[in-house]
């Protein structure tokens, strides 16, 4: 599904060179549920942005579904983000002052085949139903709780039936009870629909839900451990 080889990323902040990733190689198979853990500054967010085609590596190879991403144009990368990748952000990143249903519709506006307004709406409503928010479709983000906002974001990420779901600290802004809800949702998506999931977290408890945990430190992989059974206590 995803394979990276000797990936580096160097930022230039003013005069200072920051090496966020220093030669990372790994591959993620279809259907994996991966947690990337590490302290802040370990490079885990940078890694995810590159995996999500939101950022470009400084050097190294990145193959997405067999294609070398560094050779793809910006428009092709946009198409990959649209069709194959779903994002869930720590800060939800919903459009303010916009009803939940319109937020969920967003990826449908940029699909290759243009969908009618009615079709977009019905698909968005169906997606909200799946995350249990059909009665909040017309609420704006500031009228929703954190957990509800994150579920809207998940519905949005699932809109175009992606192959891989990338979640950057999806529970970082949520209380522990809501975090459990969200993690169970991810788990179900992975188990029932076979969606590859990569989540970034610094909380061990959250990483427990994954079947594979990759630990990063100072831009390098510290450990990569797979659990034989992905059966995690259902709280």
């Amino acid at each position: 599904m995803v394979r990276i080889e000797d990936l580096t990323k160097t930022y230039l902040i003013g005069e200072v060179r920051v090496e966020a990733l220093r030669g990372v190689s790994l591959s993620i198979a279809k259907g994996d549920f991966v947690a990337v853990v590490g302290s802040s500054g370990s490079g885990k967010s940078t890694l995810m942005h590159i995996l999500g085609c939101l950022d470009r590596p400084t050097s190294g190879k990145f193959y997405f579904a067999g294609r070398d991403v560094s050779e793809l144009s910006a428009d092709d990368q946009a198409l990959i983000r649209n069709e194959q990748i779903g994002f869930v952000f720590q800060s939800f990143n919903l459009l303010p002052r916009t009803p939940a249903v319109e937020n969920v519709e967003l990826p449908l506006l940029y699909t290759k085949q243009r969908l009618s307004r009615a079709e977009r709406r019905s698909r968005a409503v169906a997606a909200l139903e799946q995350v249990g928010l059909s009665d909040r479709a017309d609420h704006q983000p500031n009228q929703l709780s954190g957990g509800q906002q994150q579920r809207v974001a998940i519905a949005r990420a699932l809109m175009n039936e992606p192959d891989i779901l990338l979640a950057d600290e999806p529970t970082g802004n949520l209380d522990s009870r809501t975090s459990v809800d969200i993690m169970e949702t991810f788990q179900a998506l992975n188990a029932e629909r076979g969606i590859t999931i990569v989540i970034i977290t610094h909380e061990r408890v959250i990483a427990e839900y994954a079947s594979r945990v990759i630990e990063l430190a100072d831009g390098q992989i510290l450990s990569d451990s797979s659990r034989q059974t992905a059966e995690v206590p259902m709280s």
Binding site: L54, D75, A78, L79, N82, E83, F87, L106, Y110
Partner: peptide, 16 residues
């Protein structure tokens, strides 16, 4: 600009 970033993250191209 954040809105632009968000739209791009869900697949909007520069020209969109």
């Amino acid at each position: 600009t954040r809105e632009i970033g968000l739209r791009m993250s869900v697949g909007a191209r520069g020209k969109d």
